[in-house]
Design a protein around this nucleic acid. Sequence first.
DNA 1: TGACGCGATGACCGGCGGTCATTTAACTCC
DNA 2: GGAGTTAAATGACCGCCGGTCATCGCGTCA
Lengths: 223, 223
Amino acid sequence: MVGALAEKRIVPLRARRDEDKEARRRELLDAARALFEATSFAEVKMADVAARTGLAKGTVFLYFPTKEALFLALLDDLLTAWFAKLNGRLAQDGTWTGHQLARSVAESLEGEETFTRLLALAQTVLEQNVTVAQARAFKERVLVAMGTTSALLQARLPFLTPETAGQLIRCVHALVTGLRQMADIAPVAREVLTLPHMAPLRVDFRAELTAAITTLLRGLEAR
Amino acid sequence: MVGALAEKRIVPLRARRDEDKEARRRELLDAARALFEATSFAEVKMADVAARTGLAKGTVFLYFPTKEALFLALLDDLLTAWFAKLNGRLAQDGTWTGHQLARSVAESLEGEETFTRLLALAQTVLEQNVTVAQARAFKERVLVAMGTTSALLQARLPFLTPETAGQLIRCVHALVTGLRQMADIAPVAREVLTLPHMAPLRVDFRAELTAAITTLLRGLEAR
DNA sequence: TGACGCGATGACCGGCGGTCATTTAACTCC
DNA sequence: GGAGTTAAATGACCGCCGGTCATCGCGTCA
C-alpha cells in the first residue's frame, strides 16, 4: 500500500526539509480546494482532505490546527492572487470611465468562484475557530492589498477621493459577498428557484455586480 | 422538577390543541432567538433551546425537523415583520429624494440586527438542511413582500422603473448581507480590528448602508 | 374511573473535529 | 552500511452534537 502511493507521491513520505513541508502544505490546500469546489464547506470532511493526499487524518492537523484555519489559509492564498490580478489590471495608464472599471472588476472575478465563495464565509465561519495570530495575518494582508487598490483606483478615476475610494472598496466587498451568496445557492434552493415565477429572485453574479458597481460610480461622480 | 417549571409554564405541558402547539412553537422560536442573539448559530445547541423552554431535546425535533429548519422559521418571521415595517414607511404619500429613502431603509433596519445576521446566513447555512417545501414557502414569502416593496419604491421615486427597482432591491439585499457580515464580527476578528491601523477595515453598518444606497440611487437617477 | 391517543422524554446512535501515544521514515555519525 | 536519533506520520480514541425512537404518562372522554 505504501508502495503504490509512494510512486505517485511528489513530496517524500516524511517531509523533513522546510521546502517539503511547504509542498505538503500546498498539497493539503489543493485537496481542500478541490473538495470545496465540488461541494461546500460543511460537506468537506478533514478525513477526505487527508485521504485525497494519501495521508492520515491526524497529519492534516499537524499543518493546520483547525478546519477553519485550513480554509482561511486557502482564502488567504486566493485573495492575494485575486488582488494581484486586479491591481495588475488597474496599473495601466490613463483614466477610465466608471463602467470600464466596473467591468474590469467583474471580469477579474471571472473564474474566481472559489475565492468569492470562501470570501462570503470569511466572517461568518472561517474567523470563528482560528487563532488571533492567523486572523490578524489575514487581515493585515487584506489591508495592504486594499491600500494599493485604493491608490490605483484614485489614479484611474479622478473624481475619487481617499474616502470615497475606501467606501467604494468596502461596498464592493459587501456586494461580492452578498451577491455570491444570492447567486451560488444550495441544491434545495436551486430547485425552488427553477420555478418560473421565482425569476425575480434569481441572480446573475457577474451581470448584477457590474451593474451595481457602474451605478455606484455614476453616483459618486454625480456628487 | 416538573412542579417548579409547571408554575411558570404558560403552555400546558402537553400541547394538544392546535393553539397550544402554535404557542409552544413560538416558545421554541423565542428561545432560539434569545440564544442566537447572545452567541452565534454554531454556538446555539438544540439541547440549550430545549433547556431554555424547560422541554427535552427530543421535543424540539417534534416541532422542527432540523436545526436549520428552526432558524429558517425564525428568519421567516423576522423577515415578514421587517418587510411590514419597511412597507409601512414607504406607504406614505409623495415623492422622496434618494437620500431620504436610503435613510428610511437604514432606519428600518435599526434594532433588526438579529434579522440581518440571520439573513446573512440564509443561503450559506440555513437553506442547506431543510426540506424543499420549507425553502419554497420562505422564498414565496420573500417574493410577495419584494413585489409590494418594488411597487412602493416606484411610487416614491419617479425615476425608478420596474427593472431598476428590482435591481435596487437585490442590490440592497446583497449590501445588507455583506455589510452585516463585515460589521458583525467574531470575537477573534474584533480583537484584531481594535488595532488602530485596522481602521479601514472597520465597518459601521448603518452609516455604510445609508451611504451606499444613497450613492446607488444618485447613480440610478443620473442615468 | 378506566382506557386510550398522542405529546414528551432521554438514552442512544452515528459522524465528525480534534488528540496523542506509538510507529517508523529519514537523516547523522562512526 | 549499520546503529542511533529525531521528528513526521499514524490511526485508535475521545467528546460533542444533531438527530432518532421505544417508552412513558398526561389529558381527555366514554
